[in-house]
Design a binder for these strands. Structure first.
Lengths: 350, 350
DNA sequence: CGTTTGTTGACATACGCCTATCAGGAATTG
DNA sequence: CAATTCCTGATAGGCGTATGTCAACAAACG
């Protein structure tokens, strides 16, 4: 028995038990609990004492039932054909349909994330009909301002996948991107062993914070831990596979001794095509991000050597839990909301 | 808007809406929903039609409130000082205290898992006071029989960490252990690159199914993918660090050209001491299981090269969700209950 | 035709909490 | 001391469902 009843009766303590213990009325206990009206400090002590003694925790289910409140959350995601983002959208829809039974309504809006102005305006216009807004955000002053505006109007804002530090967002749901970059570097270094040569680096955009951080972490570890390898200057592929392919083709052509490639962003398809065409598929250690329908088979057949992943489903559910906790003013369970940096090789795929 | 109201009114449909739609009484709808009494096929059709048309889903919160049911679950874990199992126990206690507010009571029992008879008797005696029992089980006929007995008495049984296939357990909560072994082999092979030599293999006990499966997966991949490496015959360490140390010391002494070591079970501390003493810490690629207070610092300082992990907290919470789903007869969300094979290097630690 | 059986409706109570209202007492003010 | 403000108690009604009781009615039976 882990949780003995510390009050007299059977089962859990109710608000009435607390009232009885404290020698006050239920109404007063309610006033204390929900800050409904002024309560004399003296009686406040009484009530708080009783709550502690009985280890009273309001029944969340009954509370939500009584409140009859519908939760409204919104996810603002990038439009476009980036597979990871499409998958993220699917997870949002999935969670949405699964959570209607819990009185939560979730809207999904797609917008151009590369354009700070468009994104910021979207956030500005979102209004206060939502209790929470999750956004894959560009780290830009205009966007930060929009996030702060929402927060100040009482909306819980959560940054998703890419953070906007310094903003008033309530929470960041996503991986430690600098750690992800370091992880990629460690794998790259270990996989290449004693081999000497160059390592290519491709990012989506240098204005996306997550990509910058990954690049930073990667270069840091490569420099300190694997000096036998030279990291080439980063190239931008704008998360578009055709552009990424062009960049990869060029890299391969310019550097015959490039033996490693780390793609910080999306567009894996372009790299795979470039590697295939160059005939150096097996010679180049290629590390990519995000497990998608494109990358998965490539990992299995060895074209990709490792994938660094973040679990989109977990992220969406975590964001929702954070929203609910914030609107209910209940604490969030940090350990459960940590988003891990997943490493996938061909053998531990889900 | 992802979920438009398909019925007329605002908000979600209630049981009364269904009754009205079907032209029957609430009582009849309830009879259909909860199989409380016989209902004429004709009216059954009416009700089911209305339910579908309104997309009615009973409010789980209200239902649980009304039923007033307390859930009782039990976790049967191995006793002893295996850090992973201790951590698992902590997670159970943690979840237990966090879930009292949801009317779930969780008991924790420790037993000797290496002894099938003791474990089986524990399960036999557990009685029907529980709605669900999670057990880290030995794969043994006597244990299988005990599990089946519980299941037949209406208790939801979940195997945790190590499965008992062929038993009537409702669910297995744990990783794919053969995949874990393959993953270890792939990392071992990639880390060692072109180096030739021997790879040691230490297991806890060859009667623990998870260990056998890991060993199997490991040897399979090593043989096919990395023929330049020779896997030494497996040694048993019984998950006890002192015994494991003795085994590791012996392995190191007998095989000067052992360049890799995979520890399938617990007792990492023993291996670290043996490696340290031999002075070959940096030469031997060591892959271990489970991130614990012992293994974590060793991973950071490079004594361990990679850790294959299963998230104990996730497993406990998953088992609880499975229990609740089974006792409420609601479907379980597979994707959420999948336990992944985590790979940790020094850079992606949580 | 009376009686049994099967099916349904109407209602009441409960679950634990929220929200609101009203009255009465205590404490404060003028 | 009267008038006001502050604090508290009592109570009612509701959230959506579960569960049980009782009466009403029909069909099927002997």
């Amino acid at each position: 028995m882990l949780q003995p009843d510390s009050h007299g009766g059977m089962g859990r303590a109710t608000i009435e038990d607390v009232a009885r213990q404290a020698g006050v009325s239920v109404a007063t206990v309610d006033r204390v609990l929900n800050g409904r009206a002024a309560v004399r400090p003296q009686t406040l002590q009484l009530v708080e004492g009783a709550i502690r003694r009985l280890n009273y925790q309001p029944d969340r289910l009954a509370a939500r039932l009584a409140r009859g409140k519908e939760y409204r959350f919104c996810f603002v995601l990038p439009e476009g054909n980036n597979s990871f983002m499409i998958g993220l959208g699917d997870e949002v829809r999935d969670a949405a349909s699964r959570m209607t039974q819990d009185k939560v309504n979730i809207d999904l809006r797609l917008t151009d994330v590369f354009d700070a102005e468009v994104l910021a305006r979207t956030l500005d216009q979102i209004g206060d009909i939502y209790d929470g807004v999750a956004v894959v955000a560009l780290d830009h002053p205009r966007v930060k301002e929009a996030i702060n505006g929402l927060s100040e109007r009482g909306v819980t804002v959560v940054t998703l996948v890419s953070d906007v530090p310094g903003s008033k967002r309530a929470h960041y749901v996503g991986i430690d991107n600098s750690g992800a970059g370091r992880t990629a570097a460690t794998l790259m270094g270990r996989y290449l062993g004693d081999r000497r040569g160059k390592v290519g680096l491709i990012a989506g955009s240098l204005s996306l914070r997550d990509h910058i951080e990954r690049q930073f972490g990667f270069e840091q570890v490569m420099m300190h831990e694997h000096p036998q390898l030279t990291v080439l200057p980063v190239r931008e592929g704008r998360d578009d596979w055709q552009m990424v392919r062009a960049v990869a083709v060029q890299l391969l052509a310019e550097h015959p001794n490039m033996i490693g490639l780390y793609n910080v962003g999306a567009g894996t398809r372009g790299i795979l095509e470039a590697l295939e065409k160059s005939g150096r598929k097996k010679d180049v250690v290629y590390i990519a991000h995000e497990l998608t329908e494109q990358s998965r088979p490539a990992l299995v057949d060895g074209a990709i050597d490792a994938i660094i992943n973040q679990d989109a489903g977990h992220e969406v559910r975590s964001a929702i839990r954070v929203f609910m906790a914030k609107t209910d003013k209940t604490p969030i369970f940090e350990a459960m909301e940590h988003i891990g940096i997943d490493i996938f090789v061909r053998d531990n795929l889900p």
